[in-house]
Nucleic acid binder design. Structure first.
Lengths: 326, 326
DNA sequence: CTGAAAGCGCTAACAT
DNA sequence: ATGTTAGCGCTTTCAG
């Protein structure tokens, strides 16, 4: 490129990184050469010379989980629009693996997005070696983050159930490892002390399909007419167990999930869920990271959920009423 | 490292890449130094100097699709065991995007795994710039590949339905862009000419939930008692539409999916499916690629499916019989 | 078997 | 505004 544009390689570099420092005519000539040569700069050389790698890392606990794969997709797409590649890391919900992964990935990228981290924030920051980082589903001072508004999630779900006349509602906790889970717990606790409805906390529970299924008996024993699961997958487990046990949903039991995953709309009955815009989360995370890499100041974004009213919720005791009606 | 082990940097490099060329005592000394310093070589410098990047790329049409996210997970894990990082690419089911992605990714990796490619093989190979590549769900001469055994998938599904006494079966095609879809079409065609059962081909069809739902009327009109969908998601769409239309599954209609995705086990009724071990596919793809990078010869692996008999299939006309019983 | 030296392609200071 | 120079951290000849 330098040769055919008749300039020095240093000038080509400037055209690529700080075009405002280059004369208009030269700029044009170099850009033409780049175009005709289909020239693409070498990232390895760039990184080595102290420039940017145009690569970010996205670290998730489990890429096979649709919750994360949707976030990764959105983040990758957004990063791609500015020419960044993405390195994918997995942490397996293990703090040590997570720190190792951050430490390892940080060496090769301009910045990283860490989803649902389980290690202490300080350890994370240390492992990132000063690289810009944004946290998804966790807030920490000094580090930009994007998280679902847990307060609104609980409020939307409980309000919906209460408006349906439920007054005893089971609320299932999530893994203690997740900040979002802990935060939701606190909110539920506060709400339990305040609202007229009775909130029965169910914990510990595993937020998987099997974990949800295993919960059914405890839910029934607690005498509730409705349950707010930790997430959609767990809610589907409850749904399946209920149907297997001959309990009608929503007539005997209303079930509300969280996240609004596509799979919830494939169940029967269709799962009522508090939907979180995961694409927005992923895209926002990428946005925040790119801004931070560009030297911007950290920001914390909260994603507001929306209620997806579907078939798994209804008023309590509909069946009982029908049965007692002669 | 070179300093504290008292050797030249070139020797450190040899220890890392071809330890057999180094004296036993020196080797030990350098390895100790590496250990105490927690030294990790710089990939950018390595690549620049002509060495390996210890990075591979995995390209999928859509990472939010569980089919691919499971493959990616398995491939990434396997690559991770030998210290390789993975760059994630998405092709959006568009041949041009796909070629661009391959071309772009190939510059930065030791090799690539391309899942369900839609571009011509020669174009793919060209875009890969001579980098080792393995294809998933597509066979091409000269390029290693791993694919599900489509013949066995069709055989398993049809045999199952025939053994249940179905003799008119709808078979739904997949996207013409997919090699696997075309291949399955050919196999179905051959089977249609041979078997005693009547196979009604339904095409074109979109392998999504909505695509499946939209198919219900055509399926009913064809007068079949069972349907083999292109994949699980589409099958779930058929299931949902059937239930919405008041048709009982499996009594009025048996439905068989393909892939054995977890979500199929969360539906109601549980989806009968021809399961493909996607983890094995991902791991095998990584295996083949690493072997190829190491200079091995290309190989083609076929993954054999297993039938997951669940609730969405039964003998035909069960309901009719019951109704005509009295 | 190991040290020495060249250079991968780029960026960032410095010089003009 | 552009050319020049000196590396970035490694691998790879080539000597010894």
């Amino acid at each position: 490129v330098a040769a055919i544009a008749g300039v020095h390689s240093g000038t080509v570099s400037r055209v690529l990184t700080r075009p405002e420092l280059v004369g208009a005519e030269t700029l044009q000539r170099v850009q033409d050469a780049i175009e005709t040569l289909q020239y693409v700069p070498n990232r390895a050389a760039r990184q080595l010379a102290g420039g940017s790698t145009s690569t970010i890392a996205v670290l998730v606990p489990d890429i096979a989980n649709p919750f994360f794969s949707i976030i990764v997709q959105a983040a990758r797409r957004h990063a791609g629009t500015v020419g960044s590649l993405v390195l994918l890391g997995e942490a397996d919900l293990d703090p040590t693996t997570e720190l190792d992964a951050v430490d390892h990935l940080a060496r090769h990228v301009d910045g990283l997005i860490v989803c649902s981290p389980t290690s202490p924030t300080t350890a994370l920051a240390h492992a990132a070696r000063g690289r810009p980082m944004v946290l998804v589903n966790r807030r920490a001072r000094g580090i930009p983050s994007v998280a679902a508004n847990q307060g609104a999630i609980v409020a939307l779900a409980i309000d919906h159930l209460v408006s349906l006349q439920h007054d005893r509602i089971a609320v299932v906790s999530g893994p203690a490892r997740y900040w979002s889970s802990l935060r939701r717990d606190r909110i539920v606790e506060r709400q339990a002390a305040r609202g007229p409805e009775k909130l029965i906390r169910i914990t510990p529970a595993i937020p998987t399909f099997a974990g949800g299924s295993a919960l059914l008996s405890r839910i029934r024993e607690s005498g509730v007419t409705a349950v707010l699961a930790f997430n959609d997958i767990q809610a589907l487990g409850i749904l399946a167990a209920a149907s297997a046990a001959g309990h009608a949903v929503p007539d005997d039991l209303s079930v509300v999930g969280v996240d609004g995953l596509p799979t919830g709309a494939m169940a029967s009955p269709l799962l009522t869920s508090v939907g979180v815009d995961l694409e927005a989360m992923g895209q926002t995370a990428a946005d925040l990271l790119l801004a931070r890499i560009a030297g911007g100041t950290p920001a914390d974004v909260e994603i507001d959920p929306v209620l997806l009213t579907r078939g798994s919720t209804a008023g309590p005791g509909r069946q009982r009423q029908e049965k007692s009606a002669p």
